[in-house]
Amino acid sequence: MGEEVSFPYDAILFLAISMIIFLYTMLGDYFAAQTADLFVYLIYGMMDVVSVAFAAFLTTMYDREEKGGEPF
């Protein structure tokens, strides 16, 4: 890695809260949600989970290698 990085807990928390707020407004029918919105929301949600999980995996793996141990 070009430079060492750490896990952005604040951004992940912000993302989780904003996705939950949107789900709440959509399910509570606080606005006229479109079917396309729900479909794209699910795609974004899945991409977010996969991205954050893989990023956490890469960061942990790199940290362990840096400390001289086995990645896993």
Partner: peptide, 15 residues
Amino acid sequence: NAFFYLFAVGPSEEI
């Protein structure tokens, strides 16, 4: 919808 961009699109695309 504006809420959709504010809470779902913006944060997700940035992550």
